[in-house]
């Protein structure tokens, strides 16, 4: 289990990550979702022990990454945003070097390298120089490196960027398979990818956590309501009246004019979608309005994402006051930060 407690990172006066806490359970795929510049890579770099945190704590299998880095890092495989490959090495040579770095015993080395190469389908390029490989292959070589030694936790920073659609599906399937005996933290700014692969998602924007939940729960979060689409032919006013007054309809969100006397109504529902749908259908037919199409759909996850990202962070009054104080007195924050880093340097 990885526990992240009150993790904070400042770059000078810029706050990249603000006091975030969450846990990664065993055998779980956790999606880390946020727009560009949200603090995803910074957080992952901190979890992997590459960047020191300004404040907070990361514990991997009971060992603190800043206090017992060697022990903690043994359980980690990390694929950074840019695959960390040496352009002048051959693929096999590179993986052999990484296996040495991860202290894989010599006897297991070649079988382990063979395993990851087969898993990521890079066996056919094993004797090529990495600089001659395409972006997708480089990405997979970097991924193979993270899998060496079968670490318990995998941190993958945008692993599918730069891959073609077929490779994206392959990599997603690999990640899903990894769930059997690994935990994966997996960052992306593409929502569909996260919803296809992950059990839980952490949504982050500008360093703040906006939500930590399962995909299903997030879908429910838009009010848990379905959206009804009806395309009718007939009187617009009558139809609008019927739909609006029907039980379970929250509101008509939109009316599109499709053609002569043809309109599309989009309405938000509350409660049992099928019953409402039947009820509305009956009433419309009684009033001689033709229905050419009627269906309900789940709210768009993209909408949830955008809504969460734009939402203001929930903060207590004191924290808000503190933030305002910092905005007004940027010096106060800066000097505090400097003494902080100075102290840490002294400690080393």
């Amino acid at each position: 289990m990885i526990t992240i407690e009150n993790l904070t990172k400042y770059y000078g006066n810029n706050r990249a990550v603000n006091n975030i806490s969450f846990t990664i359970n065993d055998n779980e795929i956790l999606g880390f979702l946020g727009p560009n510049g949200a603090g995803k890579s910074t957080t992952m770099n901190m979890i992997a022990g590459f960047l020191p945190m300004t404040a907070g704590k990361v514990t991997i299998c009971g060992s603190d990454i800043s206090k017992e880095p060697v022990k903690a890092k043994k359980n980690l495989g990390y694929l950074p945003e840019i695959p960390p490959v040496y352009p002048d090495m051959r693929v096999r040579e590179y993986l052999s070097f990484c296996a040495g770095l991860k202290r894989i015993p010599v006897t297991k080395k070649s079988s382990e390298i063979k395993r990851v190469m087969e898993l990521l389908k890079i066996t056919d390029v094993k004797d090529k120089l990495i600089k001659n490989l395409s972006k997708g292959y480089k990405q997979r070589v970097g991924f193979a490196q993270a899998l060496l030694g079968n670490p318990k936790f995998l941190i993958l920073d945008e692993p599918t960027v730069g891959l073609d659609p077929k490779q994206v599906t392959e990599v997603r399937n690999i990640i899903k398979d990894l769930k059997k005996d690994h935990s994966v933290i997996f960052s992306s700014h593409i929502l569909s990818e996260v919803s296809a692969v992950c059990d839980r998602v952490v949504i982050i924007n500008k360093g703040d956590i906006k939500a930590i939940d399962t995909i299903e729960n997030l879908e429910k979060q838009t009010g848990g309501s379905l959206i009804l689409h009806i395309i009718i032919k007939g009187s617009r006013a009558v139809a609008a009246d019927i739909i609006e007054t029907a039980d379970g309809v929250k509101e008509i969100t939109k009316i599109n004019v499709e053609g002569d006397d043809t309109y599309e109504f989009i309405a938000q529902l509350e409660g049992d979608g099928d019953a409402i749908k039947n009820d509305i259908m009956m009433k419309l037919l009684k009033n001689n309005i033709q229905i050419s199409e009627i269906f309900t759909e789940k709210p768009d996850l993209e909408a949830v994402f955008v809504k969460l990202i734009n939402s203001k962070p929930e903060k207590s009054g004191i924290l808000e006051l503190f933030d305002e104080y910092i905005k007004e007195n940027p010096d106060a924050e800066g000097s505090a930060d400097e003494t902080d880093t100075a102290e840490k340097e002294d400690n080393e």
Binding site: G49, F50, K71, L76, C98, L101, K102
Partner: peptide, 8 residues
């Protein structure tokens, strides 16, 4: 990054 995140 690779060197720093390996157990060394």
């Amino acid at each position: 990054v690779l060197l720093m995140t390996s157990p060394l």
